[in-house]
C-alpha cells in the first residue's frame, strides 16, 4: 500500500500537470466521441442579431454537414435572407490540422471562389459569432486543461480550459462547461480575447437528444460583454442520417 502512494507521489512530482492535461483532453474526447456516427445532418437556422440599442436584424440559413471519419467535417451553408444575398453558399472542409478549405458561391454572377480561411476571428455576417466559433469542434485544434468540477444552474459540470493551437484565433483561451451526467455535452463556453479579458459567452439552450445519442441545442446564444451586442441562433427541422454523400459537398454542388 505504501509503495502505491509513493508511486503516485513520484508520478506527480516528475510531471505535475500531465494528469490534469490528460483529464481535460480525455473529457473533450469523450464529448466528441459521443457525436461519432451521425453520418450527416441537416438543419434550418434563424440568426437573430441584437445591437446595444435593442434593434433586431434576422437572417435565415440552411446547413448541411457530412461526417468525415478521418478528418474534420464538411459543411455547406446556404443563405435565404437577407434577400440581397439569397442563394449565397459557403462550402467548408474542416481539417484537424492546418487551415480549412473554403469556397464561396455568389449567385448574382454564378461564380465559385476559393477563399482564404485564415480569417478566423472576424465576424460572420455581422454577427457576434466569428468563423472559428462555427467550425466543427476538433479535439486536435486545442490544448486541454482540466480546471474543476462544479455546478452550473444545478447541473454537474466539468470545466476545461482550451487554448487554440491554430493560427489567427481571436482568443487567448476558452472555458468549456461540459455536462457530466449528459455525455459531456457542452453547456456553456466563455471566450477570452487576446489580452486575456472576458469577451463573449455562448450558452447552449433547450438541448434535445436526437436518435437517442446526439445532443443538439435548439438555440445558441452568444453575448458579447465588450460591445453589448447579442446573437441568437435558433435551429429547426433537425435531421440526421439524411443520405448525404461526398458528392453533395463539391464545387459543382455549390452551383446547383
Amino acid at each position: 500500500m505504501k509503495t502505491f502512494f509513493l508511486a503516485i507521489a513520484f508520478t506527480l512530482a516528475i510531471n505535475p500537470t500531465s494528469t490534469i492535461d490528460d483529464k481535460g483532453r480525455a473529457l473533450a474526447q469523450k464529448s466528441k466521441d459521443n457525436d461519432k456516427g451521425y453520418e450527416s445532418e441537416e438543419v434550418e437556422l434563424e440568426m437573430i442579431l441584437t445591437n446595444k440599442q435593442g434593434q433586431v436584424s434576422k437572417r435565415y440559413m440552411k446547413s448541411q454537414t457530412l461526417e468525415v471519419a478521418t478528418d474534420g467535417d464538411k459543411s455547406m451553408i446556404e443563405f435565404n435572407s437577407p434577400k440581397d444575398v439569397k442563394g449565397t453558399k459557403t462550402l467548408t472542409f474542416t481539417h484537424r490540422k492546418g487551415d480549412d478549405d473554403q469556397w464561396l458561391f455568389l449567385p448574382s454572377i454564378n461564380r465559385v471562389k476559393r477563399i482564404s480561411s485564415s480569417n478566423k476571428s472576424g465576424p460572420f455576417v455581422g454577427s457576434e459569432f466569428s468563423f472559428e466559433d462555427l467550425t466543427s469542434f476538433e479535439v486536435e485544434k486545442y490544448t486541454h486543461k482540466f480546471v474543476e468540477e462544479t455546478t452550473l444552474d444545478g447541473i454537474n459540470v466539468a470545466v476545461v480550459e482550451q487554448v487554440p493551437l491554430y493560427s489567427g484565433s481571436g482568443y487567448s483561451k476558452r472555458l468549456v462547461y461540459m455536462n457530466v451526467d449528459k455525455d459531456y455535452r457542452f453547456e456553456k463556453i466563455e471566450y477570452f480575447d487576446r489580452k486575456g479579458a472576458k469577451l463573449k459567452t455562448l450558452v447552449y439552450k433547450d438541448q434535445k437528444q436526437h436518435l437517442e445519442k446526439y445532443w443538439r441545442p435548439n438555440e445558441l446564444e452568444m453575448i458579447n460583454h465588450q460591445n453589448g451586442k447579442k446573437t441568437s441562433l435558433k435551429f429547426t427541422n433537425h435531421k440526421f442520417k439524411t443520405g448525404l454523400t461526398e458528392s453533395d459537398f463539391t464545387q459543382s454542388s455549390l452551383r446547383n
Binding site: 482564404s116 485564415s118 480569417n119 476571428s121 472576424g122 465576424p123 466569428s130 489567427g168 481571436g170 480575447d193 487576446r194
Partner: peptide
C-alpha cells in the same frame, strides 16, 4: 493578400 479583422474591428 487580405489583412483580416484589423485590430479586432472586424474590418478586412
Amino acid at each position: 493578400y487580405t489583412l483580416s479583422d484589423i485590430k479586432s474591428s472586424g474590418i478586412d
